[in-house]
Design a protein around this nucleic acid. Structure first.
Lengths: 106, 106
DNA sequence: AACATTTATCGTAATATTACGATAAAGAAA
DNA sequence: TTTCTTTATCGTAATATTACGATAAATGTT
């Protein structure tokens, strides 16, 4: 490669790219969908519905968490994963601004 | 790794992830922003405004094109790159549906 | 205390991405 | 035709991602 070059771009560009990256894998889209539809928010059974191992799911969850789109609270021996509303709000507003101010020239 | 597992997910999940992946790098966000603000749509000077080499920019443009978010028309010796409205519309509607039907449980 | 359950992390391998320079391809200009 | 300009592609190297099994850590159960 040759070094990341991320600091050559604006903070906004990096933040938006970060949110996009969080959703840039079908497994993470599926996890978010599952957390959205399963009311209970009680988790671990994410592993059951996805065709991935426990460690891989855990890895994807960590990425979603570090992107601020998911939060997890320890509940006894298990962890309750939920969508993090404020993260989604920020993403939505950034993306909304990005999309609405966009002009297609041709 | 161990094989891609992409076909274990739905087409919708893969499509959405694909759009997200297209924006999952600050350089591509910057390219889209540039194409949006520069009215002319005459390109190649993307290389001038970005801190990347010509070949790297070309590579990013190809990804945006293959994601359907950008189109390029040959114009003599240069290429006119523009945002592909229909691609953005599809992305916007998919993402809109995804975001609006999403329920945060906690 | 001993054991079971749940989740995170480590180690590791396969693959994908990112980046560059060099070069090819194609049209414009001389 | 030769040369210049513009863009795409090839080759290659560095790094990141994705995935798994194994194991650790923490809490609950017996």
């Amino acid at each position: 490669m040759g070094l990341s070059k991320k600091d050559e771009f604006t903070a906004k560009q990096n933040t938006l790219a970060g949110y996009a990256k969080a959703l840039a894998h079908p497994a993470r889209v599926a996890i978010v969908e599952y957390l959205s539809t399963s009311q209970a928010c009680m988790c671990g059974d994410i592993v059951d519905v996805l065709p991935l191992s426990q460690s891989t799911v855990s890895q994807h969850l960590r990425e979603l968490k570090s992107a601020g789109l998911v939060k997890g609270e320890i509940e006894g021996t298990s962890v309750c994963y939920c969508l993090n509303e404020s993260g989604w709000n920020e993403m939505q507003s950034m993306l909304g601004e990005f999309l609405t101010t966009m002009k297609k020239c041709c």
